[in-house]
Design a protein around this nucleic acid. Structure first.
Lengths: 140, 140
DNA sequence: TAAAATATAATTGTATACAATTAAAATGGA
DNA sequence: TCCATTTTAATTGTATACAATTATATTTTA
């Protein structure tokens, strides 16, 4: 058993699966003018209404180097607004515009479309989810 | 159960786990002057000695848009050679240099180092592997 | 309180990813 | 054979990721 063989690597199918699933999102998200990363940022905003970039980064496991340009794009698209906090000027918060709120309707169909092409049983999906969470918690 | 909640998304922990595990590789691979993507390309070459870019792309799920600049970097580092096939000039093959072959020794320690920080049981690792393969096969 | 430390977003630089296109070579069918 | 199709790598353009640095603002501490 050679640990340097590609097929003996656990990380490689993880890397490929993530890449390929994200790629599945691409044509669906194009209808909303979003990329996958922009989409998960919108997911958070549809829950939170308003959030500091710092907290958004903690949730998405992304830093300002990724988020700053991404959020500027979402702002240019008219989905969000950015504003610097008055009480602590280090913080910038983002919040939904009317268009951003409305976009949620168009997004409703996406999870089902993805689920139907991933096509795991309920038990498999739960099991995969739990294993991934375990991996994530150990890499922190 | 809101399917648009971040925590109800299967893809999101998949995306994060892949990202974070790849990030774990980064400091280890720096010792070899490699990035993760360059590393998996080297894994294939340590098995195959020589391979067409097309076949390498099929194995790694990457296209020439990613591989061409990446392989040029590996060539510049002195780990591989690129040469166009004489019998079919559309094909370019890559093969290991002496330095590329020797690099394998330095890489031997990496799988164990990663395994120890992912820290899943044997059964969990097998289960995760199989679920990921299932996902990959369904996204093709 | 003044200096040091910390926190935050933005910037810079490097390396993917990938869709779409291009260019060259090879193949197949009329 | 000749032309349309296919195959392949390279190129182009856009969008991440992330380490490292920078610039401000805030908090802590001596």
């Amino acid at each position: 058993m050679d640990p340097l063989k590609l097929e003996n690597q656990l990380c490689f199918p993880l890397y490929v699966a993530a890449k390929e699933v994200v790629r599945k999102y691409t044509p669906l998200l194009q209808e909303l003018n979003l990329t996958y990363t922009q989409y998960i940022a919108m997911l958070v905003l549809w829950e939170e209404k308003e959030i500091r970039i710092k907290d958004l980064g903690d949730k998405l496991y992304l830093d300002s180097g990724t988020l700053t340009p991404l959020l500027k794009k979402l702002e240019k698209l008219g989905y969000i607004e950015r504003k610097r906090s008055k009480s602590d000027e280090r913080n910038v918060s983002v919040s939904l515009t009317k268009n951003g709120i409305m976009l949620k309707n168009k997004a409703e169909v996406i999870p089902q479309q993805i689920a139907s092409c991933i096509n795991l049983s309920e038990e498999e999906a739960v099991s995969l989810y739990q294993l991934l969470v375990k991996v994530i918690n150990q890499t922190r």
